[in-house]
């Protein structure tokens, strides 16, 4: 599913070359739920940008879903991002002036072919996130937790091979955070491949495997013996489908 081989990333400064990633290799199998951990400055964000095809490694090989992406040009990377990766960001990154439904539809605008049932797909994705009665709301009219759920619905709309979440609970209170982690748990049980980037061990422990970065290399790669299960208030996770 994901194969990283000796990934290196160096930045050319004015006087110095800074090596941020110094040969990172790991594999993630289909359906795995992995957390990448590390304190700030360890190359965590850089690795996440490379995993998300937002940036190219200086050296090394990266295969995503049987495509070699390390050598793709910018347009090809855009296509890979659109079709294979679903992003969930710490700051949600929703368009302010646009309804929840339109936000979820956004990736399809850049899809190879705009699906005819786009609207129904977006509606069912939002319903699945328990937001059936919030589709016409703008982000500003939603709570943080609700906004992040809109973002997750948006990540799922293209049916991507990989869900890449960058500190998805970083901007949420603990209750909303738990809610979001419960959703990731559910997506994992449905067979989604999830890579979670976080600095918070208690968040990382929801996953089934933790990779720890230190100084641009992998310091630790171990399975989680007993993954946490997010505790959720019953009316929060049930979602609209269940209530009906």
């Amino acid at each position: 599913m994901i194969e990283l081989e000796a990934i290196e990333k160096t930045y050319d400064g004015v006087a110095v070359r800074t090596a941020v990633l110094k040969g990172v290799s790991f594999r993630v199998a289909r359906g795995e739920y992995v957390a990448i951990m590390g304190t700030s400055g360890t190359g965590k964000s850089t690795l996440m940008n490379i995993l998300g095809c937002l940036d190219r490694p200086t050296a090394g090989r990266y295969r995503l879903d049987d495509t070699d992406v390390a050598d793709l040009d910018d347009d090809q990377l855009s296509r890979v991002r659109n079709s294979k990766i679903g992003f969930v960001f710490q700051q949600f990154h929703l368009l302010d002036q646009t309804s929840a439904l339109q936000n979820v539809l956004l990736p399809l605008i850049y899809a190879e072919k705009y699906p005819e049932d786009a609207r129904q797909r977006a509606q069912s994705a939002l319903t699945d996130m328990g937001l059936a009665d919030r589709m016409t709301y703008r982000p500003g009219e939603l709570s943080g937790g609700q906004q992040q759920r809109v973002a997750i619905a948006r990540a799922l709309i293209t049916d991507p091979a990989l869900i890449l979440a960058d500190e998805p609970t970083g901007n949420l209170d603990s209750e909303s955070g738990a809610e979001v982690m419960a959703i990731f748990g559910r997506l994992h049980r449905r067979g989604r491949t999830i890579v979670l980037v976080t600095h918070d061990r208690s968040v990382a422990e929801h996953s089934h495997r933790i990779i720890v970065l230190k100084d641009g290399t992998i310091a630790e790669d171990s399975p989680v013996a007993e993954p946490r299960v997010a505790e959720v208030a019953p009316d929060e996770t049930r979602g609209q489908e269940a209530t009906r």
Partner: peptide, 16 residues
Amino acid sequence: KKEIGLRRALGATHGD
């Protein structure tokens, strides 16, 4: 910038 970055992340090309 954020909006543009988001669109790019979601698959918009330079041309888009």
